[in-house]
């Protein structure tokens, strides 16, 4: 997941397309994949860089709220599972930065934009993980929402992104099951554990719904992204699917979704539910979420503190190359 409010260029009508653009659109309409060296409209490239870059940033910032509980995981097995999960997230970041590189932007360039605030990561990671059940809720709800989005992105038109999604989805569904397993243990545990589980659901429910982004029925950006198959479903479709899937899971746990308006709607064969507070969403995106400063601050600090390390490796590589070159000259 984790691409929200990705700006796209305004959509052109069929008559306005150049012959190249028309041929490109026809390839997409036929379901062909676009590969790195092939011609693509500049708007397509830019939109994808924003989307893939934001997704990559979300994976690496996403290490932080879960990393927050690694040292406090309650058993050795839970600790190992959580470590493996956070390692997977970093690995996802790596594939996605590589996918973005095929569009002509380096990882360092993207990181510079994350660090100066000009690129975003998913709003969800600006919420704190306050009790152990939050680690379950993150796996169940956050990874659950991410999968909802990423499953459709396996069919996205850009080849490297689509292939990254296929691989990532496999690992994410594993994470979601692990998260739900934590929730089961908590929901079936002591009264205190149950309270932690309910508290986690209460705090993560609306932020999870926000992950799909605001309603996009009026958005021209979404229309263009959908025409390019950078985006396959609308935000509202995905949110509805997520709610329909999650409500029975919460019932099975014996937990209550914190929404008095939640009700099965027989006519649409789905749940009616309350919209999240979008003013909160925009505040979080603007930098005013509970953890924005800590999350971005931690990433910037890691990068700055690591400068000597990266410089050292680079200097060694140069020295080693110079020594090899000198040895070649000496041998001649």
């Amino acid at each position: 997941m984790y691409a929200q409010l990705v700006k796209s260029e305004g959509m052109k009508s069929a008559a306005e397309l150049s012959p190249e653009e028309r041929a490109f659109q026809e390839r997409i309409d036929r379901g062909e994949k676009i590969e790195p060296k092939e011609w693509m409209p500049e708007g397509y490239r830019k939109t994808l860089i924003r989307q893939v870059g934001q997704h990559a940033h979300s994976e690496i910032v996403g290490q932080l709220p879960e990393g927050n509980w690694i040292t406090r995981a309650p058993t050795l097995e839970r600790k190992a599972i959580l470590l493996a999960k956070v390692q997977d997230e970093a690995g996802h970041g790596l594939y996605l930065y590589c996918a973005a590189e095929t569009l002509g932007v380096s990882r360092d360039q993207l990181l510079a934009k994350l660090h100066d605030g000009s690129m975003k990561y998913s709003s969800i990671f600006n919420y704190p993980t306050l009790n152990w059940a939050d680690i379950g809720a993150v796996g169940w709800l956050v990874d659950g929402a991410a999968i909802m989005n990423q499953v459709q992105l396996q069919k996205t038109s850009y080849g490297p992104y689509s292939r990254a999604m296929i691989r990532i989805c496999k690992e994410e569904s594993f994470h979601q099951r692990q998260g739900y397993d934590i929730m089961m243990k908590m929901a079936q545990g002591t009264a205190e554990q149950k309270a932690m589980a309910q508290d986690a659901l209460d705090r993560f429910w609306y932020p999870a719904l926000m992950m799909f982004g605001p309603s996009d029925k009026d958005s021209v950006h979404s229309a263009q992204s959908m025409a390019w198959k950078i985006k396959i479903n609308t935000n509202d479709e995905l949110r509805q699917k997520f709610v329909d899937q999650t409500v029975p899971q919460a019932e099975y746990l014996g937990l209550k979704i914190p929404d008095p308006n939640l009700k099965w709607n027989e006519e649409k064969k789905g749940y009616d539910f309350s919209e999240p507070d979008w003013s909160e969403f925009f505040e979080v995106i603007a930098g005013n979420g509970p953890c924005n400063k800590e999350r971005l601050g931690a990433r910037v600090k890691a990068w700055e503190d690591g400068a000597w390390f990266r410089d050292g490796l680079l200097a060694h590589a140069e020295k080693a190359e110079a020594r090899r070159a000198a040895a070649r000259v000496a041998a001649e």
């Binding site: 690496i60 470590l83 390692q87 790596l94 990882r107 931690a298 990068w303 690591g306 390390f309």
Partner: peptide, 29 residues
């Protein structure tokens, strides 16, 4: 080692450190 999670100087090191910690916790078990 697990305290480094998400704070390493480069993404490859985040992965390597998590992997090392995971091995060590597995051996602990």
């Amino acid at each position: 080692v697990s305290e480094w999670c998400g704070h390493a100087p480069v993404l490859e090191e985040d992965i390597a450190l998590a992997n090392t910690a995971l091995d060590l916790i597995g051996q602990t078990q």
